[in-house]
C-alpha cells in the first residue's frame, strides 16, 4: 500500500512541477541555469549538505524520539484541549465531499509540491542567496520542530474527538495515507504543525521574491493557507499547533537571513562565542 501511495505522489508532483516551472520560472532562467548550474551548486554545497544532514538526523530521530520523549516529554494533549476546546470543529461547517477531497489532496500532494517547487525555482536565480536561505530555513524548521516534538507529547484532535471529525478526517476517507504518514511521523508529534511552518516559510519567501516570481506569490500564499486550514479541517492539528507553526516559520525566515550570506558559518560561530563569553561575568572571575 505504501508503494501505491508513493507512486501516486511522485506522479502527481511530477506533473505539477514541470508545468509550474514553465508557468512561473520561464525559459530564460532555465537556459541560464543550464550553463551556470555547476558554480551555483558549488556555492550552495555547504547549505545543501547541512539540510541533508538535518533530514538524515530527522529521519533517524523520529523513530527514536518517541522513547526519549516518553522519558523527558510533557503531556500537553489535555492543556491544548482545555485551552481551545472544540475550536477546530468550526472548519467542519464548510465540510462537503468536495472540500474534503480538496483539503485531503492539498494536505498530501499540494504540500509536497509547495515545498519542492521553490527549491527548483530559487535554484534558477543567478544569485544563490535565496536558494541557500530557503534550504537553511527548511533545516531550521526540522531541527526546531524535532526538539519541540521531543519535549511536547500531544495527540491531535482526531485522537481526542474521533467522531466529531470523522466526516472530514483524512484517514477515514483515505485510510491508505496512514502507510505514508506513519513512515514520516508518530501520532504524538503534533506541536508544532510542520505542514504549516514549512508552507508558511515558502509563502513568506514567495512574498520576499514576489518581484522575481510575481505569478508564484499568490499561488504560494493560497496553497500555504490551504495547507494550514487542511491540517485543522482534516482533524490532524490543533489551532495551537498551526499558530506555533506560523511563529516557527517566521523565526526560521528571520534566522535564515541572519545566518546566510553575511558570514561563513564558521566565522559566525566564532564571533558569537566571543560575544557570549563577554556577557558571562563568572568566566572572567574564574580567570
Amino acid at each position: 500500500m505504501l508503494a501505491e501511495v508513493l507512486i501516486q505522489l511522485v506522479v502527481v508532483v511530477g506533473i505539477l512541477l514541470p508545468v509550474s516551472i514553465a508557468l512561473f520560472v520561464g525559459r530564460e532562467r532555465l537556459v541560464r541555469t543550464r550553463s551556470e548550474w555547476r558554480t551555483r551548486l558549488k556555492t550552495a554545497a555547504p547549505t545543501i549538505a547541512v539540510l541533508l544532514v538535518v533530514l538524515l538526523i530527522n529521519r533517524f530521530a523520529r523513530q527514536r524520539a518517541p522513547r526519549l520523549s516518553r522519558e523527558i516529554g510533557f503531556h500537553l494533549t489535555a492543556s491544548f484541549y482545555n485551552i481551545e476546546g472544540e475550536f477546530i470543529l468550526l472548519f467542519q461547517s464548510i465540510a462537503t465531499p468536495e472540500t474534503t477531497a480538496y483539503f485531503s489532496s492539498i494536505y498530501v500532494y499540494g504540500y509536497v509540491f509547495l515545498i519542492v517547487f521553490p527549491v527548483l525555482a530559487y535554484f534558477t536565480l543567478p544569485d544563490t542567496r535565496m536558494f541557500r536561505r530557503l534550504l537553511t530555513a527548511y533545516a531550521l524548521n526540522y531541527v526546531i520542530g524535532l526538539v519541540l516534538y521531543i519535549f511536547v507529547i500531544a495527540y491531535g484532535p482526531r485522537n481526542v474527538m474521533p467522531a466529531d471529525v470523522a466526516a472530514t478526517m483524512l484517514f477515514e476517507n483515505n485510510p491508505q495515507y496512514q502507510y505514508l504518514t506513519r513512515e514520516v511521523n508518530s501520532n504524538t508529534n503534533v506541536f508544532p504543525s510542520l505542514h504549516t511552518s514549512l508552507s508558511a516559510t515558502v509563502a513568506t519567501f514567495a512574498a520576499i521574491t514576489r518581484s522575481t516570481f510575481p505569478k508564484w506569490f499568490p499561488v504560494a500564499v493560497a496553497l500555504a493557507a490551504s495547507v494550514a486550514i487542511s491540517t485543522m479541517f482534516l482533524g490532524i492539528h490543533w489551532g495551537i499547533d498551526v499558530v506555533a507553526g506560523m511563529l516557527l516559520a517566521a523565526l526560521c525566515v528571520v534566522l535564515s537571513d541572519r545566518l546566510v550570506g553575511r558570514w561563513a558559518v564558521s566565522e559566525l560561530l566564532g564571533e558569537r562565542l566571543e560575544r557570549f563569553e563577554d556577557r558571562i561575568p563568572w568566566l572572567e572571575r574564574s580567570e
Binding site: R70, H75, T77, A78, Y81, N82, Y155, N159, V160, T188
Partner: peptide, 9 residues
Amino acid sequence: SLDLRSDIE
C-alpha cells in the same frame, strides 16, 4: 481533564 497516553504508557 483528559489525560491521553499511548498503549504502553
